[in-house]
Design a binder for these strands. Structure first.
Lengths: 202, 202
DNA sequence: AAATAATGTTTACAGCGACAACATGAGTGC
DNA sequence: GCACTCATGTTGTCGCTGTAAACATTATTT
């Protein structure tokens, strides 16, 4: 055990020819850069530069830029789903549902570029191979709605309720990001809009 | 009056050094190309090629690409507003309001790239210099809501109702475009979601 | 008619995504 | 212990992009 043996990095033996875990590094760095700019201005070369690796090494892990973006989007969906779960933890019924809605909008406001990327119709973003359904915001909302609806609610009614709820929070998030609605702060806008009563649950 | 004097084009005397009305041609061609691809894949050079003009001539009319995109977005907003007005024509109250919502979503589905561009937070897209407020979808919805709300509705209540209504249609439109919701067809989704009763108007 | 301003062109440059050919070294079978 | 293999990273290159600078042409004004 030499003095600087405590190289914490699990397997980022960066110093040799091979990186060790470039794929993870690409996603991690991609997410980091998405916090500073949009997905359109994000460039493969910038990511590679940041990691300290050649630009084309990326193509050993992703067939093209869209594939990397899809991976970032999948990671983003999982992150969003985690935050929704955390927000609803300990609550149930209407309260849990409302909290998930608030978490949804808050996530969008805090991670605008990532949020936009998630909903930019890269076909792979809905691919179950990439996204665990149980980690998708849509699935979470559906579960919550199903539990909320009355026992005699039809499948169609539940479907409509999900659609309304999702549209409501998604629309609010997108409108805020677009700068089209002038509001004091995001949180109060959320509270104005996200009221469970407006969903016509039964 | 020679044989081919009936050059219908008002002042597109394309054949000489000067185009005549390049600015309009740029916007027109930009909108046309947006029907085939996204705003990200739209290139200035492609527009110029289409018109038959050099690539850099664009910079005599717009300082940079974003400025041209902002002009396209403004044009898109006006077009959307026109379609909303047309849809609500002849109806009033709740019916007019619901029709405007449907027109909003329909526009998004039929012009996905343009619709996305409109709500992509180019700062100039909210600039009153570029967009006549009376031709903006938000303004139309607000007017409609104001007329709908009861006489004793407070300003805050109207504001909240607008926010909910706009969020609802905007979210539905965006979710459809993202491919996240699987539905039979857009129209039925619209009808499921856009029900005026869910807006808590009073 | 001459001067000037507006509009379009040519040339050039750096940054991008992506392909092909080559270099390195980690893992496996002998 | 060693050679072979192949996954992984690099260099060089291509065509495309946005945009700046210098130049050309025409419309407009004086």
């Amino acid at each position: 055990m030499s003095a600087n043996d405590n190289t914490v990095n699990i397997r980022s033996n960066k110093s040799g020819y091979h990186h060790g875990d470039l794929r993870s590094a690409l996603i991690e760095t991609g997410l980091k850069l998405l916090e500073q700019g949009s997905a359109e201005t994000l460039s493969l070369r910038e990511i590679a530069r940041e990691i300290g690796v050649s630009a084309t090494s990326i193509y050993r892990h992703f067939p093209d830029k869209d594939a990397l973006l899809a991976a970032l989007a999948a990671e983003g969906m999982a992150k969003l789903a985690r935050e929704q779960k955390a927000a609803a933890k300990g609550k149930d019924g209407k309260e849990a549902f409302a909290e998930m809605g608030r978490a949804y909008v808050r996530f969008a406001v805090r991670n605008p570029a990532l949020f936009r990327l998630i909903y930019t119709s890269l076909p792979a973003a809905t691919d179950p191979d990439c996204v665990n359904p149980e980690e998708s915001p849509g699935w979470l909302l559906r579960q919550s709605i199903a539990g909320l609806a009355g026992a005699k609610a039809t499948a169609a009614q539940k479907r409509a309720a999900l659609l309304r709820a999702w549209s409501l929070v998604h629309g609010l998030a997108m409108l805020i990001l677009s700068g089209q609605i002038a509001g004091p702060d995001a949180d109060s806008l959320i509270n104005e809009v996200v009221s469970v009563d407006s969903l016509k649950l039964r």
